[in-house]
């Protein structure tokens, strides 16, 4: 179930203006606060962004910040940072408003999570509602309602 990978405080709205790398660091920081990753993981995600560019901006307005499995990851998890002020990442899918952060200790622990996530976000109505949502409670309701 999707909700089991999110901590109760892992869906947040960033009110202040952030650069894309700041947003990635803050979104990934939610995984650290939730006890799903160590602080080193934030650096690993930023290094992944630095090395490969904004390839994890995977849909209009949507980034999935992550790095390869590593010892900095405690367990599979996900978080969401909504940017009240969408930012530029350099991707064709700019501006980015939803920064999901993902971590997994290996290449398998999170496969259920991603299957549920792919199902959820492939629904354009869900995607549009999330892009337009401005309250944390509304976003968790959209993500977790009718979950598989």
């Amino acid at each position: 179930m999707l909700s089991s990978y999110f901590d109760k405080d892992s869906i947040r709205v960033a009110a202040q203006e952030l650069s894309f790398s700041e947003a990635v660091a803050e979104g990934t920081g939610l995984l650290v606060s939730a006890g799903q990753a160590n602080p080193e993981y934030i650096g690993e995600v930023l290094a992944n962004l630095e090395a490969l560019g904004p390839y994890f901006v995977v849909a209009p307005g949507v980034a999935i910040a992550h790095a390869p499995p590593s010892s900095a990851v405690i367990k599979a998890g996900m978080a969401l940072l909504k940017l009240a002020a969408p930012c530029e990442s350099g991707s064709a899918n700019d501006p980015v408003a939803l920064v999901f952060a993902l971590c997994s200790p290996d290449s398998e622990s999170h496969l259920d999570l991603l299957a549920a996530f792919a199902d959820k976000l492939s629904d354009s109505q869900v995607m549009n509602s999330l892009l337009n949502a401005s309250a944390e409670s509304v976003m968790s309701a959209i993500l977790f309602e009718n979950q598989l």
Binding site: A51, Y55, H66, P68, L111, A118
Partner: peptide, 19 residues
């Protein structure tokens, strides 16, 4: 394909299979 082989690529695989 994705940079790490665990995130974007897994989501992409799921939707490629569906398509």
């Amino acid at each position: 394909v994705c940079g790490a082989g665990i995130g974007t690529s897994v989501l992409l695989k799921a939707n490629v299979e569906r398509a």
